[in-house]
């Protein structure tokens, strides 16, 4: 299988979400590994702004033609923005998972939760380990 695009400036979840700190917000999406594993993304269910999310808990659902997967929050806090474009264009997750395929922005309650997490090198190893 092809290589994965894993940008350096991100924090990675074991459950294949990425987080990017942008000022006081943390943008969240799924990784290139996740979108490749899923295949064609056909539906994304996201919370409304104002929803509280807990680190490690599901905040939404992503569906490919064959599979349903939960999306897990990388940090606790309040959802302050949601990518509404994904409702009509879920394929953006496949086409640009770190850009137009972003999912939610969280205002973290405690930004220190993001310290000491997986970087791209650690996550690349995590992906490698799951290959058959």
């Amino acid at each position: 299988m092809a290589e994965y695009d894993l940008p350096d400036n991100l924090i990675y979840n074991e459950t294949d979400e990425w987080a990017r700190v942008e000022g006081k917000r943390v943008l969240v999406g799924v990784t290139d590994y996740a979108q490749q594993q899923l295949g064609d993304v056909v539906f994304v269910e996201l919370p409304d702004p104002g929803t509280s999310v807990e680190k490690g808990d599901p905040f939404g659902v992503i569906e490919s033609v064959k599979a349903v997967s939960d999306l897990y929050a990388p940090v606790s806090g309040e959802v302050v923005d949601v990518n509404r474009d994904l409702a009509d264009h879920p394929e953006q997750v496949n086409e640009d998972c770190y850009g137009d395929g972003w999912m939610i922005a969280i205002a973290p309650g405690d930004a220190s939760e993001l310290e000491g997490r997986m970087d791209s090198a650690a996550y690349a190893k995590h992906c490698e380990e799951r290959k058959e």
């Binding site: 295949g39 064609d40 056909v42 490919s64 033609v65 064959k66």
Partner: peptide, 8 residues
């Protein structure tokens, strides 16, 4: 094989 490139 479930898919080669894309089911769609």
């Amino acid at each position: 094989p479930v898919q080669y490139t894309s089911i769609l």
